[in-house]
Design a protein around this nucleic acid. Sequence first.
RNA 1: GGGCAGUUACCAAAGUGGCCAACUGGGGCUGACUGUAACUCAGCUGUCUUUCGACUUCGGAGGUUCGAAUCCUUCACUGCCCA
Length: 376
Amino acid sequence: MNFTLQHTDKQSNARAGLITTDHGVIETPIFMPVGTVASVKAVHFHELKEDIKAQIILGNTYHLYLRPGLTILEQAGGLHKFNGWDRPILTDSGGYQVFSLSGNRKLKEEGAHFRSHIDGSKHLFTPENVVDIQRIIGADIMMAFDECTPGDAPYDYAKKSMELTHRWLKRGLERFDATTGKYGYSQTFFPIVQGCVYPDLRKQSAEFIASQGREGNAIGGLAVGEPTEKMYEMIEIVNEILPKDKPRYLMGVGTPQNILEGIERGVDMFDCVMPTRNGRNGMLFTSQGIMNMRNEKWKNDFTPLDEFGTSYVDQAYTKAYLRHLFISQELLAMQIASIHNLAFYLWLVGQARNHIIAGDFVAWKREMMPRLGRRL
RNA sequence: GGGCAGUUACCAAAGUGGCCAACUGGGGCUGACUGUAACUCAGCUGUCUUUCGACUUCGGAGGUUCGAAUCCUUCACUGCCCA
């Protein structure tokens, strides 16, 4: 993997760059649609490529390990061959499941003991076997196994959690450096900053992560229950330390506003389930604000879904029709909403990139921000 | 014409003297969702009120009772069966 910094904004820390992988080039800042179980829910890869213009998608180590399982993935020749997505893939390590499935797991020094949410069976994830699994999945970018610390964790817990993540990182890196990709292309490994909402911990973690000298770095443990302002503050502290010539990935974030704030603070990569999950639940993000498509007010609004939208669904369908599809629980509703939302997210980061290159990012962002949160 | 069963909120359907503005579904409305256990979850759904609470309801009318959706009388309507 290679990162080229193309432009750095003069009035902010925003940057535009290029990440080159063996599966293609990614223009940053970028948003990465989440495809947990080898599928971006409700969206075909054809639409993802041609209409949404996704450049890289996510997969999830924990979920793919449980199903379809490593035997199938290896027989298929890796995830790219299995699902047919021939562009870059990033896999999360399962660190988020340490957080989200906290009722089903026990943390120990060696790793995390999970009970499968599917059948209750017992599994052990360690920093080492999570690398091995991601070798089999064949992600272009694999993530370190960390503990995603809850946003409301007390200081002592956050400190211990961060230290565990750091120890796990050393072990993961050792395994990564001792192994190679199985399918003829190269893989890279991003370590993850933790430290919850505590500036000194974040600083300490960022320094530790930066000192590992990897090809890219991630910021984790944000947007997990802490106030949004705290999140922005932590990003600033961390990005002060993380190297400028490496991509920075803010994990799991977020709303359109979160993303612009992140870009302004020097983040290059984002992923989030919001455009797809919230889309399936009837929520549309647009350049003019947010719409809940189940609301009665759209009942007889026969104007296009999003007159400023760039995806074909925006012009092809009306608000009244999409509302009808949601009220009727038609599957097409979820497809349309997911395509729209992802296309909007990719449009948003594409615009940000263009304005960074043009030199007017801050002014553009100032104009966009109030509109993005408006409820239509 | 006779017999039996029934009539409860938007729909369906519990409740058979006070704990009933009334269980539960559905429908409807509103909200939540941030490295996806999520086509999920939560709240509201007689009227007024932010809450407390007040008021009006259980086919219609009348009655019994301290008190009725619940008991009695009667009327209307619906379904099934017999003629």
